[in-house]
Design a protein around this nucleic acid. Structure first.
Lengths: 149, 149
DNA sequence: CGCCGAAACTTAACATGTTAATCATTTGTG
DNA sequence: CACAAATGATTAACATGTTAAGTTTCGGCG
């Protein structure tokens, strides 16, 4: 059977953890989890967005997102309203307070990212990211079943 | 600020999720989580191992491991005993039932792995793994502080 | 119009991730 | 030998991952 620490999922997990370990202290300083930070950044990039679409871009499952939004709302970092055309849909946007928080966190975050790139090699990092995207794309369909038509 | 879906942590997360999505159904069929499976495989590779060392090789934090071991023990998949030389230390090994379960799960798991490698390219996959290990290694020390001496 | 299936969230329930605190044992040191 | 610090492991508390079930609202269709 495949050697254990050589498995692909393990290698991805370990690499990701090594990267996140660099960022976590900075986020923690501002009482943010990694997921909360992902959400704030995603919201900062748009005017407004519904919950389903946010789940897609922030790569979070619905239930996790619901809980986190509840907290971010309570902290005043985001604003929620209901879509007037479809009452099922919740529209989200970032609050001024949220924007301010992002401005506080982002510089250090960027510096860390730059340090990682510098140490690993900017070109290699770029190549790695391409390979990761390709891997994801290549696993899009069913794996063991032939995709006909 | 850095584009969001281009961030390295996100790319690693998405790639890993794409890979794990392939394995999860097979594990679930045998009522195993990904972490439980990691532990069983690690135990199958050795005679006995203490909890701390298992946490290291299975890349799990102590508290997670404690909980999972409790469950695996209750299911009769592992065996526990105390180190006679150091009563703080718990020694773990896999049970016959655990070995049997591995034998049931492993073939499909191997087939899925082979299918991933075939689709992405065996050589490329190997290269990717090397790059991931390198990334992890390059982030071992402190990032923003110069390592003197 | 009225119902029924689908869609958008949310809640529930259980497992793991993460940090801090606790408990038992061991080890080093005076 | 006594005792403080360190170690191994677990427990606690809170956040997220994951699947299933529940709620409200839409849309289509008779």
């Amino acid at each position: 059977m495949r050697g254990f620490s050589q498995s692909l999922p393990m290698a991805l997990l370990r690499a990701r953890e090594a990267v996140m370990r660099q960022f976590r202290p900075n986020l923690r300083k501002h009482d943010l989890t990694e997921q909360q930070w992902r959400i704030l950044r995603a919201l900062a990039a748009v005017e407004a967005i519904d919950v389903t679409e946010l789940a897609r871009v922030a790569f979070l499952l619905g239930p996790s997102l619901s809980r986190i939004l509840r907290d971010l709302d309570a902290r005043g970092l985001i604003e929620r309203q209901t879509d007037t055309n479809d009452l099922r849909r919740g529209l989200l946007s970032i609050s001024p307070k949220g924007l301010k928080l992002i401005a506080q966190v982002a510089p250090t975050s960027e510096a860390i990212y730059a340090a990682i790139a510098a140490r690993y090699g900017v070109r290699r990092l770029d190549e790695l990211q391409k390979m990761l995207v390709d891997l994801e794309a290549s696993l899009a369909g069913d794996l063991l079943v032939a995709e006909r038509e």
